Amino acid sequence: MSIPQILDIASTGMAAQRLRVQLIASNIANSETTRTKEGGPYRRKDAVFQSENLGFSGALAAAGVKVASIQTSQEPFLTRLEPGHPDADADGVVSYPNVNPVEEMVNLTEASRAYEANIAVVRAAKTMATSALEILRVQ
């Protein structure tokens, strides 16, 4: 595998995790949003990944990752009895987003670590390329 192939694979992983972090940030920011343009509370969003063919042959034919879709959660909303809330129904029940901030923080940590792992791959590839140039220069 060549250095450019390694960098291509790592960059797809970094791009995918960057989008995932953006979705997690949106989920956390909207965890109390009871009214959206579409109507009703905010629905949690998550990225669905799949392998991507970067044009390599052989064993690496399906190297890399891409975002296949952004999935909107269909889990039921959380409900609270708040009769004075402007978005309460006739019974005084308010529907809140199906976002668990603790779960989102765990997902954020996981996405950040995956991003950092891809950065480590890029750094290792850079070190290998630098070492190869040093070997060529010596001889």
Score class of each variant (00 low, 15 high):
44 R>A: 00
89 D>Y: 11
11 S>H: 04
113 R>S: 10
20 R>H: 08
124 A>P: 08
89 D>V: 05
90 A>P: 04
133 L>A: 12
56 F>A: 02
116 E>G: 10
91 D>T: 11
78 L>N: 01
18 R>E: 15
18 R>V: 08
35 R>N: 15
9 I>S: 01
45 K>Q: 13
64 G>N: 06
41 P>R: 00
123 R>H: 13
21 V>W: 15
91 D>M: 13
129 A>N: 11
107 N>D: 12
94 V>C: 04
18 R>K: 15
127 T>W: 12
39 G>N: 04
121 V>Q: 03
13 G>W: 00
128 M>F: 14
85 H>V: 04
37 K>Y: 15
82 E>P: 04
27 N>T: 01
52 E>M: 15
118 N>P: 09
81 L>T: 14
66 K>C: 08
88 A>C: 02
32 E>L: 14
9 I>R: 00
118 N>M: 11
64 G>T: 08
17 Q>A: 07
17 Q>N: 13
69 S>N: 05
126 K>N: 15
35 R>A: 15
115 Y>L: 14
60 L>V: 10
27 N>A: 06
70 I>F: 07
79 T>R: 02
14 M>I: 03
103 E>C: 09
136 L>A: 11
92 G>K: 13
20 R>D: 07
16 A>W: 00
123 R>P: 09
52 E>K: 14
68 A>V: 04
38 E>I: 03
70 I>Y: 09
66 K>A: 06
